[in-house]
């Protein structure tokens, strides 16, 4: 309960100011390497502070892996990367029992930890692994622990998984099931950099000097920040707005829009509402405020819900994007009505 103590001991105003300062430092360090993508960086940080995991979707070469690696360096966290391939096995991620020989020549099984035993795990191209392997990762993400040979190993906190997937090359892939997509707090779509950003990328990556990223947040501080965000209150009207937005994604609910009724098979789960509120709180604190507003909720809707809505056949056939449906919902559902 360090966070409670910290929040109680320090006035909220100072806590929030320190939060902003720390986040600004992280952004600054990441910005040394990563050009643009401020929204993606903030989204990833939001997931980290909310205790969730992020799914990054984008074509290859946009710097997803670089972003995660840089973040790991700036946060001073243990970083591991797993390149998902069809022949990847669960044990390749979780670890396995191996026969080890001690000094006296005795042999025994010893658990060899897999790459998941890190604070920051990059699951690159997660949709290329088989469902069995994906499940192993996703179960660890949910349980925050790994059980091997009847023995449970807790994962160190903070435990944060960043998964990436390529939306174009779908052949030979295993798309994540809806239930497993729900485990990700955010699904962030990495856009192609703009012209000016490309200039900067080329300048930084083709020169002789390589940017040096220093760690600015340690593990303990991250946990403090996590606790701090949980202290942020949410007014009833704001919470009600988030609930109405989530309900509006369900075709059978009263506030459902025409697109939802036509293209959506299932709406977002309660996890979606949790994700929205947590993200709204973090956005409020990032902005120096003491409570989440309706604007914060609106800002969190897209990354929180886009992977939680299941389109029906007509929606899939017509290539409807969940973002378009959500935009319509945001346009029709107003706060305070």
């Amino acid at each position: 309960m360090a966070s409670k103590v910290e929040a109680g001991a320090t006035a909220p105003r100072e806590s929030v100011e320190r939060f902003q300062k720390d986040l600004a430092a992280v952004r600054s360090e990441v910005g040394r390497v990563i050009v643009g993508h401020q929204g993606i960086v903030d989204g990833v940080l939001t997931c980290l502070l909310a205790g969730g995991h992020a799914l990054l979707e984008g074509v290859p070469g946009l710097g997803k892996t670089m972003l995660v690696r840089t973040l790991g360096r700036a946060l001073d966290l243990q970083f591991s990367r797993v390149q998902f391939t069809p022949d990847l096995m669960p044990s390749d991620i979780l670890g396995t029992q191996v026969i080890a020989e001690d000094e006296r020549g005795g042999k025994r099984f010893e658990f060899q930890r897999g790459p998941i035993f890190a604070n920051l795990v990059l699951a690159d191209e997660i949709n290329r692994a088989t469902p069995k392997t994906q499940s192993a990762l996703l179960e660890a993400m949910q349980e925050q622990s790994v059980t091997i040979a009847r023995k449970t190993y807790s994962l160190d906190q903070p435990f944060f998984v960043l998964a990436t997937q390529n939306p174009l090359e779908m052949e030979g892939t295993y798309p994540l099931p809806e239930a497993q997509l729900d485990r990700f707090l955010f699904k962030l779509q990495v856009p192609f950099p703009k012209r000016e950003e490309l200039h900067s990328i080329l300048d930084r990556t083709t020169g002789a000097v390589e940017a040096d990223v220093k760690p600015v947040l340690d593990r303990a501080r991250i946990l403090e920040l996590r606790a701090l965000t949980r202290e942020v209150p949410v007014a009833r009207s704001v919470q009600d707005y988030a609930i109405r937005l989530v309900l509006a994604t369900h075709p059978d609910e009263e506030g459902a829009t025409a697109s939802v009724k036509r293209y959506v098979r299932f709406g977002a789960s309660p996890r979606g509402a949790q994700a929205i509120l947590l993200a709204a709180k973090i956005r409020a604190v990032m902005d120096g405020r003491f409570s989440a507003s309706a604007d914060d909720v609106r800002g969190a809707v897209m990354p929180s819900l886009r992977h939680r809505m299941i389109l029906n056949f007509e929606g899939e056939a017509e290539g409807v994007k969940p973002d378009a449906v959500l935009e319509e919902i945001l346009a029709s559902i107003k706060p305070g009505t």
Partner: peptide, 11 residues
Amino acid sequence: LHDRLGIAWQF
């Protein structure tokens, strides 16, 4: 004001 007044009134 990002709902500052409304939220404060509720609190």
